[in-house]
């Protein structure tokens, strides 16, 4: 049932050219060079330190690594990261429960 629903939404958004981050709850990550990363639509912060930022997103996690990380701004679903970004990695996770337990 869930799979059918997901499929329908996918088809729906493709046929109407709707932005997928809106319909599919996917994160939108905007990088400005290697100094800024702007992440929208995330589901929560898991780890943040000087050289690492891990965010919960829909059906997965985003790992950003680098140096001198500062969170320039943090709102409920938006984060602006500043620093020397060297790596952005997407890690799909089958069940999201792990992340929520961590909180």
């Amino acid at each position: 049932m869930k799979k059918i629903k997901k499929k329908i939404i996918e088809v729906f958004s493709r046929s109407f050219e709707l932005p997928s981050e809106v319909t599919l709850k996917l994160p939108r990550i905007t990088l400005i060079g290697s100094i800024h990363a702007y992440i929208e639509n995330h589901d929560g912060l898991v780890v943040f330190s000087n050289d690492k930022l891990v965010l919960d997103v829909y059906q997965g996690r985003v790992h950003i690594t680098g140096k001198n990380f500062v969170l320039k701004m943090m709102l409920e679903h938006e984060i602006l990261l500043e620093g020397d970004i060297s790596d952005v990695r997407y890690e799909p996770v089958e069940s999201k429960h792990q992340g929520e337990e961590g909180l």
């Binding site: 500062v70 969170l71 320039k72 701004m73």
Partner: peptide
């Protein structure tokens, strides 16, 4: 940093968050 995450969830705007070490964080 999880405390700032909690703030964000409750509608408190935070900025310039820096993690100084594993036990302290300023914002």
């Amino acid at each position: 940093e999880r405390f700032f995450e909690l703030c964000a969830r409750n509608g408190i705007k935070t900025w310039d968050i820096i993690k100084q070490d594993s036990q302290t964080c300023t914002g």
